[in-house]
Amino acid sequence: MKLHWSPRSPFVRKVMIVLHETDQLSEVNCERSLVAVHLPPNPDVIADNPLGKIPTLILNDGTALFDSRVICEVLDLKAGTELFPSHPPSRIPHLRWQALADGLTDILLLWRTELTRETGQWDAVTSGWLIKVREAMAALEREAEALSDTPFGIGHIAVICALGQLDFRWPDCAWRDHFPALAKLENNLSQRPSTRATAVTDDQAPGANDVTASQLTFSK
């Protein structure tokens, strides 16, 4: 299998964690694929995925899978590891947590791009994103205990990737000071071999698309 991959992408990281957890990493060739909203579509990626996004996984039969939710579930089904529980009472919480964490990650990625615009950010949009990020983090804080008491699965994977994006792109937001239960959960999840092995890294030259101020705070 071939995976269009980047060490900077939180959604690629979801897939990589699943590959580690399901013992399928050796079956995948990771191909570094640069994509960005402000750049022309990568021709190698768009040849496999008409949306031009990563992650994109090419199966051995040539079938292309996207996005991370589809890829992760297919890999889980292939391995029979139940990261996506089959029993509805167990499955639904994981799907909820994945949707919440993925939605948070989407906003963080869009906001990061908005801050790099030469004309400056659109305040009417980013002020709304700030409210949504705060509310999403507050919701995860309320559910941190339930996450801690639930067997590891896709919900935890999505949450750790969202929080990893906060640490990578918004390092001065000090989210742990405001969400102690979530910080404790993140600390526990970060000890897993799959999360340690997939920590986000920056392979671009220093200064590329740097943002001088995060503008993301949790103090109202």
Rank of each mutant, 00 (worst) to 15 (best):
I71L: 08
G80K: 11
C173F: 00
P89V: 03
A146G: 08
V18E: 01
D67W: 11
S9Q: 09
F152C: 00
R96I: 10
N188M: 11
A136D: 08
A47M: 08
S90H: 10
A205P: 14
N60C: 09
T56H: 12
V133R: 00
P88C: 09
L3T: 03
I58F: 11
T195G: 05
G62S: 04
F84T: 02
A158N: 01
T22F: 06
N42A: 09
V125M: 15
Q191N: 14
F11M: 03
S26Q: 13
T150N: 05
E118Q: 14
D177E: 10
K2M: 03
L104Y: 05
P93F: 04
R142H: 12
A197H: 06
E145S: 11
S6F: 10
W129M: 02
D123A: 12
T126E: 09
L216Q: 05
S26A: 15
A47P: 02
Q98W: 08
K184L: 15
V200H: 14
L109P: 07
R169K: 10
D172W: 02
Q98K: 09
A138F: 08
L104D: 07
F218S: 10
A146S: 14
N60V: 08
S68Y: 00
G52D: 00
L166V: 07
N187I: 08
L147S: 05
D76Q: 04
A162W: 00
V159M: 08
P171C: 05
N49V: 02
G80N: 08
R69I: 07
D44S: 07
F179H: 09
A181L: 13
Q191T: 11
R8Y: 02
A181G: 10
T198M: 03
E135L: 07
E31K: 13
G164S: 06
S90P: 01
A36G: 15
K53I: 09
A99H: 05
E73H: 12
G103S: 12
K14R: 13
L57V: 06
Q204F: 14
D76N: 12
M137Q: 05
A174R: 13
R134I: 04
R169Q: 14
C161A: 13
A138Y: 05
Q204M: 12
A101R: 03
Q215T: 11
E118L: 10
E186V: 05
A208I: 14
F84Q: 03
S26C: 10
A146I: 08
A36T: 08
A208W: 14
A183K: 03
E141T: 09
W97N: 00
P41A: 14
T217M: 06
T126W: 01
N42C: 11
W170F: 15
A213F: 14
F66A: 09
D106V: 10
V133Y: 06
S33C: 06
P151Y: 00
T63Y: 07
T81I: 02
R8I: 11
H87E: 12
H94Q: 14
P10D: 05
T217E: 12
Q24L: 15
R192P: 04
R117I: 03
P50I: 06
T113A: 15
R196L: 06
L39C: 08
T116G: 09
L57A: 04
P43L: 10
T217G: 15
E118I: 06
V45D: 03
